[in-house]
Amino acid sequence: MSRTRAARALAFALATAAPVPVAAETLVAALSRDRVSIESNFTGTEVTVFGTIEADPNDPPRPRGWDVVVSLTGPRRAVVVRRKEPVAGLWINRESLVIADVPLFAAVASTLPLDRVTDAATAARLGLGRAGFAGTVTEAADARTAAFRLALHRLQSSNGRWAEQPTGVTFLGRRLFSATLPIPADVPIGPYRARVTLFADGRPLADQTLDLIVAKSGFEQGVADLATHRPILYGLLAVAMALVTGWLGGVLFRRD
């Protein structure tokens, strides 16, 4: 009993004497929805992340305030990047590089540009921002690999699959924040994970992950399921539909 009390006293003394302030803040965050349903009228949508920072007066002061980074990452797949080269006057795919574990969709929003929230190494370690988009960050082994990875970043950014919103997280009050992330119309189907990370003075204090499902539903799902799970039936249906449409057209517009 007395040993426990002594240990507690010691721990308290150590904690209060520690030169680095102990992070005591916690995060409570939620998504505006946990499912994005793709139906025939789907033209893209948005997902909003709300959150609040729970802190009490005993926590170390944050004279520079907090920073929040919200990232949303979609299903990961291996992708192949190909490069065209002129061969005998024709532009032909020659070299290619398979890059594993690439998020097909990734969006990052933050209170400040990411390089002002934290240093590159920390961002990479947490998988945030451009460095985190392509999975493991290799110190570009050679110029060729670096060029292919750069092309991947360029293409994914230009087609809206990888998006950065350097000031996308806004504080609604001192502790309440929100971020609205775009879900484009051609969003890849699959499981998504949102990650909210709280920073102060460049150091991560707390984080929370939230799950989101992007799935076809209703008629779209029915058609896709049939095509995937009953391909023979789907094929017969496609042929029947084509024959009937053609026959109907002939009957309706018959002239002879």
């Binding site: 797949r77 291996a78 992708v79 192949v80 990047v81 190909r82 490069r83 065209k84 080269e85 002129p86 006057g89 024709l90 532009w91 795919n93 398979v98 097909l104 292919f148 092309a151 991947l152 360029r154 293409l155 994914q156």
Partner: peptide, 15 residues
């Protein structure tokens, strides 16, 4: 399309 140098020589596709 085959002869004119493309604006972007890289393409990506899923494996």
């Amino acid at each position: 399309e085959l002869v004119v140098p493309p604006a972007e020589v890289y393409t990506i596709s899923r494996v």
